[in-house]
Amino acid sequence: MTTDEIKQIIIKQILEIAPEINEEDIDPNAHIQRSLEIDSFDFLRILTALNKEIGVEVPEADYGKVDTLDHMTDYFAQRLQQ
């Protein structure tokens, strides 16, 4: 899976959970939860869906590493390489 493919999967899942968001409103460097008003419940749903799609489970201790779209993409790419 390429980094770009991972990013597209993440975007798809965000839009699935929060359908009123436009793709162009997702700033790759902004805090996902705060900038898109995604609460902890919906954030967990996004991570659960990504686990199904990508096969990587994000432990709670790593939440700080998946705070923005770019960080999340890098995180999944790294975990997939391991």
Partner: peptide, 17 residues
């Protein structure tokens, strides 16, 4: 709660709420 969630799959995690 962190310790409880550590041993669970992501589907079974409990939120602070």
């Amino acid at each position: 709660l962190g310790e409880v969630n550590k041993n669970r799959t992501i589907e079974d995690r409990i939120l602070p709420a």
